[in-house]
Amino acid sequence: MTQSPHVFTISKLAYFAVPVALLLVLMLMGISVPGFAWTIVVPLALIWWIRRLKTVVDEQGITAVGTFKTVRIPWHDVNGLRFPKWSPVCVVLNDDSSVRLPSVSFNDLPALAKASGGRVPDPFAAEREARLAAD
């Protein structure tokens, strides 16, 4: 049975930044400085960026869609995961290089483990099993 791909995206709360950016742009344009007219593209670029960043996990591997490039990583090239402070999760490849996984955080590991079909271990599974055994 084939499993549909799991897509990790930025939270929809990020779209609240768009009206703030639009308000700032309108304020800059309101002070009647013609040089700031181009800044009207900032809210549109922000929408594009929020929609673009994602990580897709399927049976064949991981696809990391960044701002300007997309990287496809087959499962046989995955060596592990790295969790840099204040950054998205990075997948470590067999050659010790790493690729950032946009929109994936430490809290997404159970969903990542499930979407990977067990190729990525779930660090929270042991705690859940211990709690169920205790009840």
Rank of each mutant, 00 (worst) to 15 (best):
Pro5Asp: 02
Pro5Glu: 04
Val7Ile: 05
Leu13Asp: 11
Ala14Val: 06
Ala14Glu: 12
Phe16Pro: 06
Phe16Ala: 15
Val18Asn: 01
Val18Trp: 01
Leu22Phe: 05
Val25Asn: 04
Met29Arg: 09
Gly30Met: 08
Gly30His: 06
Ile31Tyr: 10
Ser32Leu: 12
Phe36Thr: 15
Ala37Trp: 15
Ala37Tyr: 13
Thr39Asp: 14
Val41Asn: 07
Val41Trp: 11
Val42Tyr: 04
Val42Arg: 03
Pro43Asp: 06
Leu44His: 00
Leu44Pro: 00
Ile47Pro: 00
Ile47Thr: 04
Trp48Thr: 11
Trp48Glu: 11
Ile50Gly: 00
Ile50His: 00
Ile50Asn: 00
Arg51Lys: 08
Thr55Trp: 02
Val57Glu: 04
Asp58Cys: 07
Glu59His: 13
Glu59Phe: 11
Gln60Phe: 10
Gly61Glu: 01
Gly61His: 04
Gly61Ala: 01
Ile62Met: 06
Ala64His: 08
Val65Ser: 03
Lys69Met: 15
Lys69Trp: 15
Thr70Ser: 09
Arg72Val: 10
Trp75Gln: 01
Trp75Thr: 05
Trp75Met: 03
Asp77Ile: 05
Asp77Met: 13
Val78Leu: 04
Asn79Glu: 15
Gly80Leu: 05
Gly80Arg: 09
Ser87Gln: 14
Pro88Ala: 01
Pro88Gly: 05
Pro88Lys: 01
Val92Asn: 02
Asn94Ser: 14
Asp96His: 10
Asp96Ser: 12
Ser97Thr: 12
Ser98Pro: 00
Leu101Met: 07
Leu101Trp: 04
Pro102His: 06
Pro102Trp: 06
Phe106Val: 10
Asp108His: 08
Ala111Val: 10
Lys114His: 14
Lys114Asn: 13
Ala115Ser: 12
Ser116Pro: 07
Ser116Thr: 04
Gly117Tyr: 03
Gly117Phe: 01
Gly118Arg: 07
Arg119Gly: 04
Val120His: 05
Val120Gln: 01
Val120Phe: 06
Val120Leu: 02
Pro121Cys: 04
Asp122Thr: 07
Pro123Ser: 10
Phe124Val: 03
Ala125Asn: 07
Glu127Pro: 00
Glu129Tyr: 10
Glu129Lys: 10
Ala134Thr: 08
